[in-house]
Write a protein that binds this DNA or RNA. Structure first.
Lengths: 401, 401
DNA sequence: TTGAATTAATCCGCATAAGGGAAAAATTGG
DNA sequence: CCAATTTTTCCCTTATGCGGATTAATTCAA
């Protein structure tokens, strides 16, 4: 049981102030006081400590109010970009994308490795990731020991608390203690997180959920993932497990249960393409969905049918998720969106059909084609949140460089 | 944004101490200190204030440690049963059950009204509930103004925060502000909550989830409900909405979507029975499931088939819920369990088939045939939790009588 | 029976938090 | 240059939790 002591109190208020500054980008103390309901005295004390720790900066130029304002001008407070650096990564079956960001989550450098890594031994994958992280750090003109935290977003069922990867399409093994492995290799604390959770936070900080604290995100990639934002925090199942939507059962068929992944997973949509062909080559290079879209535009019957089937399955699963979580907004992301109209239309139709009347209109559907960089940035946000929440003054990573 | 001030700190620690005492039934200050990680000094201060407010009592008789213990004996602290009284109720389509409980949640009196209330005008239902509450209070030798809170548990989609009943099988209307209606009638603050949430808390306090803070409960009654306990608290969807499992889509059939309620809802299982017959009579009296069980024991083909179909549908839905929430335990309750083996076996089989390998074994399935009184007691627990959390010393309901 | 040992509970003083009000600081307008 | 205005800080009060010393209540042994 966590006891409430003055330290916790200060940690909470510090985080709130820091997060308020982040959201506003630039904000005066009075406004922080208004938004957080903290007294100006307390805000002043907290910001003084944040300034002292080098987490924020004061900018005196320009008045934040209208130009004709009288009285002492407000001092703009902003996050100090240099307060920390983190690395975020999206690890997928056929590509890896790394970013280095500053304390604000702004991207400083990007590294993309386009290669198939799934089913490789762990040591090989770990080698590649380590290499990618180091390259990306060098690209940002930094040294590896200037990085405070690393967060890797990967598909599959991941136990956030321990960093164990229960199952992942990119690993042959199950139950890998990947956080420890990478932490040791890099010499930096490394967090392992579900890629869906990463992109969920990315949308909360920079994307289509900036204005709300409750929402659900569904990622339609090789794996089908889910992120639930609840009161501004990721809702992790008991034990901190991430979810795997692909395992959802849609019904029973002649050969047992029909899972969502068998209808809407990447391989289910693209099908078995003759190896060596142009399509198979595109898939291998991670361009499968884009290629599929051109084929759909050319009215390829098989693919259109597959896209429609996938859309229907997703729409139905989505309705069930909305029934359970009743979020005001649902964001859909992932490569499958590239399939275009046949997929999206059938998804929307199936959703409309399946959503119960009682909660019709509760959730707003939003589609978003984020770049891989955004996913990696989301992983960086996971890392940054850890830093925001840690009580700098007393203990934790070094505040500034 | 909730600001952290000393008052919040105090409220948190007070609640933790009170809840620790409740769980232990009888406990000394040292043990509270050990379990809550609060210093003995703080525990002493808080318990002094709780004693002062009359919420707990000190019992000096008997030593809590082994008989041969040396030193000053520990003083046992217990909840003061008389610190508050609440009314809890389970409102179903064909019966109402009321209980009055003391501050510990112990039942003081019970009232059962066996009558069909669904599809009646709201005023009629409200009349009946008012009557039931007042009778139950009199039965407990109390006056209505000695009751601190009332909580009504009803089926359907209910907005806990506002007390609005979005949809409920017992109301003709939708969007009823039932909490306000009943609060005005009774002159007592009345909470309206999903019956599934009520029974979930009942299990957490007294039943099969006493030892854990994370679990999922599925209620199989006329309506199919869900309760999710997350970190010892009910997980309410965004907006405090309760869930309606019956609206979950299982697949598509010739005439549109197939919902769980059409496979496993009470009416789906029992079917259309010729009115006037014994079965129809039993259903009208709320004995439908029990009657069905005797028919199943007599090998009624139609009913066995219906039970199996319902079990399969529930098992599949359950697997999906476990996939999403990954709880260590799932408790199944409700009248449908009375169907017996054909239902339970097919449920278990379908669940085993549908549960993905990656989380096989994380969730333990527990079946429980709670009485209606337990459901009502759960509603009382919802009310009591409000009292436990309210900062008595400063404001809130009167502490003692 | 009496004193030592032991354990529980409380008292006292300290550190730290937030908050309120007054004072200081920094600007504009006349 | 002074008055007006607004932001920020300083000083003081109150509340919290905690550590150490103190008091209280019991058992054990001589």
């Amino acid at each position: 049981m966590k006891t409430a002591d003055p330290e916790l109190m200060r940690a909470i208020n510090r985080f709130n102030v820091l997060d308020t500054i982040r959201r506003a980008v630039s904000i005066s103390r009075v406004e922080i006081s208004e938004r957080t309901q903290l007294s100006t005295t307390t805000v002043s004390a907290i910001t003084a400590s944040l300034l002292d720790d080098g987490l924020i900066l004061a900018r005196h130029e320009g008045d934040l109010r209208n130009a004709a304002a009288r009285g002492r001008p407000r001092v703009a407070l902003e996050l100090n970009p240099d307060a920390a650096r983190v690395v975020g990564a999206k690890i997928a079956a056929n590509r890896m994308v790394f970013v280095v960001t500053d304390f604000r989550g702004e991207v400083l450098s990007t590294q993309t490795l386009a290669l198939r890594v799934d089913r490789q031994p762990i040591s090989v994958i770990a080698d590649l990731i380590e290499d990618g992280v180091r390259r990306c750090v060098v690209d940002a003109n930094l040294s590896i020991d200037e990085i405070d935290l690393v967060c890797l977003g990967l598909p599959g069922v991941i136990e956030h608390r321990t960093g164990h990867v229960r199952t992942s399409p990119i690993f042959r093994e199950t139950g890998v203690d990947f956080a420890r492995e990478m932490s040791e290799r890099l010499g930096i604390v490394t967090i392992v997180e579900s890629d869906a959770h990463a992109i969920t936070l990315a949308h909360h900080w920079f994307g289509k959920a900036r204005d709300i604290d409750d929402m659900v995100l569904v990622s339609l990639e090789q794996t089908l993932g889910l992120g639930v934002l609840h009161g501004g925090q990721l809702f992790r199942g008991a034990g901190g497990l991430s979810h795997n939507l692909g395992d959802l059962v849609l019904g029973t068929g002649p050969q047992g249960t029909i899972r969502l992944s068998s209808q809407a997973g990447e391989s289910a949509i693209l099908g078995d393409q003759p190896s060596g062909g142009r399509f198979a080559e595109a898939i291998r290079l991670g361009r499968g969905m884009a290629h599929a879209q051109t084929l759909i535009a050319a009215e390829d019957e098989t693919l259109i049918a597959a896209a429609i089937r996938a859309g229907e399955a997703c729409g139905m699963a989505l309705a069930n998720i909305v029934t359970l979580f009743a979020p005001p907004r649902v964001i859909l992301v992932g490569s499958s969106l590239a399939l275009g109209q046949p997929f999206l239309d059938s998804l929307r139709d199936a959703y409309a059909m399946a959503i119960p009347q009682s909660i019709e209109g509760v959730a707003e559907l939003v589609f978003d084609q984020s770049t891989d960089e955004t996913w990696a940035q989301g992983a960086a946000v996971v890392a940054l949140r850890e830093l925001y929440e840690s009580p700098w003054s007393t203990t934790g990573p070094a505040p500034a460089h």
